[in-house]
């Protein structure tokens, strides 16, 4: 890869991330400890995985507000499957991914085949799925997840001992995130369908003229997103060791916000895996920083809202300035 293309685009947000980290570290040095880093990582694995799925959706020019209801549904299914069917980790992953993919597929079909605008289609499926989840569970927590699965969730990698004698390490769930990042990057960067995702987001008509099958790509994107949500549900369940059907209320906004922070455009065509990873990190660091600086947790939303609006506003103002000063005639 050529250095120049090494994402000048992602540089500003990376700088913001570094600057913010610096400020937080000055306010509270705890921020820059391995322990805190691992904490941040563990509590945001689900967000990161779902953000990558959302990235693909935004790239096509779509949006998906049903993601929170889908993961709620999949965690419930996963929980039930673990308790009543099999506690085997592979079976669990299979069940979760299959159910996630199926729900994503429904979104994909509604959007690609019935041409329902994504925001409306996913609002509809969100209502249906969430309604079913709450009806079937009555909002009650699912406990009694088998011990073997809980033990699995507690595994740490590269463990080491801290000065105070406690042992910490990378949570095993990282093993899910890393392949997901790689896989998403691989699909977007290295496969024809991935470039097709960018192409239909950039210019739908031309992409079809070039031979891309837009409806197949859309169906793939929403299904893949469902698949990632399935994996995220397994990760979530293994970390929380129980299932709360209400745990994800409003989570879709956080996912979208993180992806947008990472520079993806809701109009489609622009955005990258690297940007999204940085965006998610920024999101997490803000949350973590607010806690470390003892700022009430409610401020988190204010800060996130302001950052979303602020960053896009700056972008728009710059674009307008460029447009205004554009040379339209070479005056002699």
């Amino acid at each position: 890869m050529n250095i120049k293309s090494l994402k000048i685009k992602e540089l500003p947000i990376l700088l913001i991330l570094l600057l913010l980290s610096l400020i937080i570290t000055i306010a509270n040095p705890t921020f820059l400890t391995v322990e805190n880093f691992l904490d941040i990582l563990k509590s945001n694995l689900v967000l990161a995985m779902m953000a990558l799925g959302m990235l693909m959706v935004l790239l096509t020019g779509g949006i998906d507000v049903s993601v929170a209801s889908i993961i709620a549904a999949v965690t419930v299914i996963t929980g039930q499957s673990l308790i009543h069917f099999s506690s085997n980790i592979f079976v669990t992953i299979l069940v979760a991914c299959l159910s996630g993919t199926l729900m994503g597929l429904v979104n994909g079909l509604l959007i690609a085949k019935l041409k329902i605008p994504p925001i409306v289609a996913t609002l509809g499926t969100m209502s249906v799925i969430l309604g079913l989840v709450l009806y079937l569970t009555n909002g009650a927590w699912i406990t009694g997840i088998p011990d073997s699965f809980i033990e699995f969730g507690r595994i740490t990698l590269f463990s080491f001992e801290l000065v105070d004698g406690r042992t910490i390490g990378f949570p095993v769930q990282v093993l899910f995130l890393i392949p997901v990042i790689f896989l998403t990057w691989f699909i977007l960067k290295k496969t024809v369908i991935g470039r097709g995702i960018y192409a239909i987001g950039g210019n739908l008509e031309s992409a079809e003229r070039m031979g891309f099958k837009a409806d197949r790509i859309l169906i793939f994107v929403y299904s893949f997103e469902g698949f990632l949500i399935g994996l995220a549900a397994v990760v979530h369940t293994s970390i929380m060791r129980q299932v709360d059907p209400n745990a994800f209320l409003g989570f879709e906004m956080q996912v979208i916000a993180a992806v947008v922070l990472g520079g993806a455009s809701v109009l489609g065509g622009f955005g990258s895996v690297l940007g999204t990873v940085i965006g998610v990190s920024l999101f997490c660091v803000i949350n973590n920083g607010l806690i470390l600086m003892h700022i009430p947790v409610f401020w988190q939303k204010i800060v996130v809202g302001l950052i979303i609006i602020g960053s896009i506003s700056i972008d728009m103002i710059q674009k307008q300035r460029v447009e205004k000063n554009k040379i339209r005639v070479d005056v002699e």
Binding site: I63, I119, M253, I256, A257, V260, V266, K301, I302, V304, G305, L306, I308, I309, I312
Partner: peptide
């Protein structure tokens, strides 16, 4: 959509 998404959170 983005402006009001941000506003919603805010």
């Amino acid at each position: 959509m983005l402006a009001t998404l941000g506003a919603m959170t805010l």
